[in-house]
Nucleic acid binder design. Structure first.
Length: 272
DNA sequence: ACACGCGCCTGATCGC
DNA sequence: TGCGATCAGGCGCGTG
């Protein structure tokens, strides 16, 4: 599932491949992934050039404008569980392609098997009202602010890390990886952790996110990058998807439990 | 303010 | 071409 690193990979590719290109076509075989009617979305975006792409957590915001910067419009994209955006030579859209963009002859597709993702027109590309409740990006937030936002939450630390209102970007995969690296069990109440441990968790979260970005993200279900290629981070995973397998640090069997409604894998010996 | 459960979706996998 | 049940999970929303 696309988390911060996978979204970053797509955002970079959009910038590199489409910046300056004009949107000349927009079709939506399944308009249900659009928050506004197709005609509204077309009216806002067609004939404008893609000028920038911002990312906050797992949200991308693509900005369009006419030549000279007039009449800007912004499309916020969230891939949720199975959303993909890609450009592939000779690709013939299957039944899961819900939106197709045409950039002066360059076709770009939005594909989403579970239809959880959303494409939303927003007014403000940097601080859209729709993201008012979403916290700062996990890679950008400073320790004091993050500490303040974590507060004295009694929920398990994993639930707090998954809460995009605290800081945005972590999902189930990287939370488990981060907590393994920090040596903390996902079930531990956040309020029971001292500042040194919380600081270590934040440091490890950033470390694993950056490393995953460098490896092009993780492909578990069906994430592919902009060019249709899977990410390379999967073989770096220490715990996610490895319940029952030996811990890469101590050799003991990894345990599985449910935290915040999500499957969670940890090492009973290395994580206390 | 915070914690928790549900619904949205479809494909893969499992049990019989 | 067996089929129904279960699981996977991000997020918005309703409830307590």
């Amino acid at each position: 599932m696309p988390e911060l690193p996978e979204v970053e990979s797509v955002a970079r590719a959009l910038r590199q491949n489409l910046a300056g290109r004009r949107l000349t076509g927009l079709e939506a075989p399944f308009a249900g992934v659009l928050d506004q009617p197709l005609r509204t979305t077309r009216r806002a975006l067609l004939d404008k050039r893609l000028v920038d792409v911002h990312r906050r957590g797992k949200y991308m915001i693509a900005s369009f404008a006419r030549d000279g910067g007039d009449d800007p419009a912004h499309l916020m994209i969230h891939l949720r569980m199975t959303g993909q955006i890609f450009i592939l030579d000779g690709y013939r859209p299957d039944k899961h392609v819900h939106v197709s963009f045409d950039f002066e002859g360059l076709p770009v597709h939005y594909r989403d098997v579970r239809k959880f993702g959303r494409l939303t027109l927003v007014e403000d590309p940097l601080a859209p009202a729709a993201l008012a409740h979403v916290g700062p990006d996990m890679l950008a937030v400073r320790w004091p602010e993050w500490r303040r936002r974590v507060g004295s939450r009694t929920a398990p630390i994993k639930a707090v890390l998954l809460d995009q209102g605290v800081a945005s970007g972590l999902g189930n995969i990287y939370v488990d990886e981060c907590l393994f690296l920090a040596g903390v069990r996902p079930t531990t109440p956040a309020a029971a952790l001292d500042d040194a441990t919380l600081r270590e968790i934040l440091r490890r979260a950033r470390q694993v996110l950056r490393l995953a970005i460098d490896h092009g993200g993780t492909t578990f279900l069906n994430f592919t990058d902009f060019y249709g290629k899977p990410g390379n981070f999967r073989r770096q995973l220490r715990v996610y998807g490895r319940a029952g397998e030996p811990c890469r640090a101590c050799g003991g069997a990894l345990a599985k439990t449910t935290v915040a409604g999500r499957t969670s894998v940890y090492c009973p010996d290395c994580q206390v």
